[in-house]
């Protein structure tokens, strides 16, 4: 982990919100970097100050009684428990609340650790100003940059028909294995494409998850969409805050590109 990466996840580390591999990497960096140690101590002091000294005011006793009274009146005023006064905006309000909560956000099914790690990486990289090691809009240039750096052929897809622009690429790691990481952007959204050797990793399968397409595993982790699949020896993951349909479209583009690059008979 570099200083830049550490600073990007400093608060999350302090709050105990980093995934284990990132948290270990952060501790390792902190052990040897005096500058980051100092920044970490400063942040910890501020956080501690707010947590211990901020005056937490309680509600006035009269308010509790006022609310209980209002609830009782609301209950009486409508047979179904919806007071007339509120009913005219209750429907749009419910819609707003549902949208804000996001249906998927309240789901409690836990995605596999490897998926959470991919999302954590995506979130970390989306916070860096310049995460790419090779910056180029050319698919050939980025693909060529990976030659000799990773042991598999890195297919760099062209998503430009969907308005998604190639930013560049970098090396990353995923539970100790080397990953080719490609960055794309659409407007202000980062789209991450990870490619890595799939063997020995507990990767989720697509069956029954994406509904219309068994090739792809899809999940939503904390508001971020993830699509994971394997083609031959290489596993791919697309991670973004774009909507699921757009991401599946991208996954299909990668799939077709990988198929077309395979020499016949392999």
């Amino acid at each position: 982990m570099t200083c830049q990466e550490l600073r990007a996840c400093l608060d999350a580390h302090l709050d105990g919100e980093l995934d284990l591999p990132l948290s270990l990497a952060a501790d390792e960096h902190l052990a040897f970097c005096a500058g980051c140690q100092w920044a970490y101590a400063q942040e910890r002091e501020l956080r501690g100050l707010v947590r211990t000294r901020f005056p937490r005011e309680g509600a006035p006793a009269a308010l509790r009684e006022r609310i209980r009274g209002a609830l009782a009146r609301a209950e009486q005023a409508a047979g179904v428990g919806v007071p007339r006064r509120w009913a005219y905006w209750a429907v749009p309000a419910a819609a707003v609340i549902l949208v804000a909560l996001g249906v998927g956000l309240w789901q409690r099914s836990a995605p596999p650790p490897v998926v959470r790690e991919l999302v954590a990486k995506h979130v970390m990289y989306s916070r860096l100003d310049a995460p790419a090691e090779i910056v180029s809009p050319s698919e050939e240039a980025v693909s060529g940059w990976f030659k000799g750096k990773v042991r598999f052929d890195v297919a760099v897809p062209d998503f430009s028909p969907s308005g998604i622009r190639l930013v560049g690429g970098r090396l990353a790691d995923l539970t100790g294995r080397q990953v080719a990481y490609l960055l794309y952007e659409k407007g202000r959204s980062l789209i991450s494409l990870f490619a890595f050797p799939g063997r020995g990793l507990a990767l989720p399968s697509g069956e029954g998850t994406s509904g219309r397409d068994d090739r792809f595993y899809v999940a939503k982790v904390d508001g971020t969409e993830v699509v994971v699949w394997t083609q031959g020896e290489v596993a791919y993951a697309l991670v973004s805050s774009l909507d699921r349909e757009s991401l599946l479209e991208c996954a299909d583009t990668v799939w077709r590109l990988v198929v077309s690059r395979k020499p016949p008979g392999v």
Binding site: C9, V50, R51, V99, G102, L105, V123, D222, G223
Partner: peptide, 21 residues
């Protein structure tokens, strides 16, 4: 002050985790 987790904050504010961070 309320000591919510990032996940709770993402739910409350209706934004992705990266935005919370």
């Amino acid at each position: 002050v309320e000591e919510c987790s990032y996940k709770e904050m993402a739910q409350i504010c209706g934004v992705p985790l990266g935005t919370v961070m």
